[in-house]
Design a protein around this nucleic acid. Structure first.
Lengths: 110, 110
DNA sequence: TGACGTACTACGCCACACATAGTATGTTCG
DNA sequence: CGAACATACTATGTGTGGCGTAGTACGTCA
């Protein structure tokens, strides 16, 4: 089980990388995150909804009104060009962070 | 350069892993972090001092009054047994987090 | 003598993940 | 038939951790 503290700062990266594959809506993104993490991390609804709004406010995703199969309105999100470059930056930073943290824990038996 | 957001949540891990090797004091820990990260991350004094106090409050490190070469008082910190087990837990969690985040960014060119 | 390095403290801010709570419709099943 | 459950989303507030800003105090060295 992965704590919120451990994942903090990487929700945006998760959302953007999912939206990079195809447009989606918040509720589905939550399910995908659950699935991709192998149920190791279950994002809270509030966390995810505020994340997508933050990303939209930053121009990294765009939204459009769609509908579910049953006709219920549903908000879809789509990654923007800015979102794509942001994602690449974040991925690069993630790689740096990994190598740096790993340097500290070398020699620590887990 | 690694942002504070990227490293957030891992300062404790860095400090504990340094103290695992030998006792040290806050100012030196900051220099070590700078060195180990290859200057990619420079921790702020306030961040570090609050981190060691937090760790001490949690019983993960103990402190003792020492002195610098010039005789100036200096506070040394030493990892406790609790700190060692906490470090191992954090390292395990870090490995989980790495594999989970990596699953998202597979296929993203950096 | 004054700039720089060492060693540390105090106070407050802000972002992000979360807690808690609620709305509203659709589906399923006993 | 109705009650639980899933879907899809909103509103408001809290807490933690890293940082900004600021200041203290001593030592060394040019």
């Amino acid at each position: 089980m992965i704590s919120a503290d451990a994942i903090r700062g990487y929700v945006d990266l998760m959302v953007l990388s999912l939206l990079r594959q195809r447009p989606s809506y918040a509720y589905e993104l939550a399910q995908q995150i659950h699935a991709v993490t192998g149920a190791e991390y279950t994002i809270k609804q509030t966390t995810l909804y505020s994340a997508v709004k933050r990303l939209e406010g930053a121009g990294l995703v765009t939204s459009y009104a769609g509908a579910s199969e049953s006709g219920k309105p549903r908000t879809y999100y789509c990654i923007s060009d800015g979102g794509l470059s942001h994602l690449e930056l974040k991925v690069a930073e993630w790689r740096d962070t990994k190598s740096v943290v790993d340097r500290f824990i070398e020699g620590v038996e887990a």
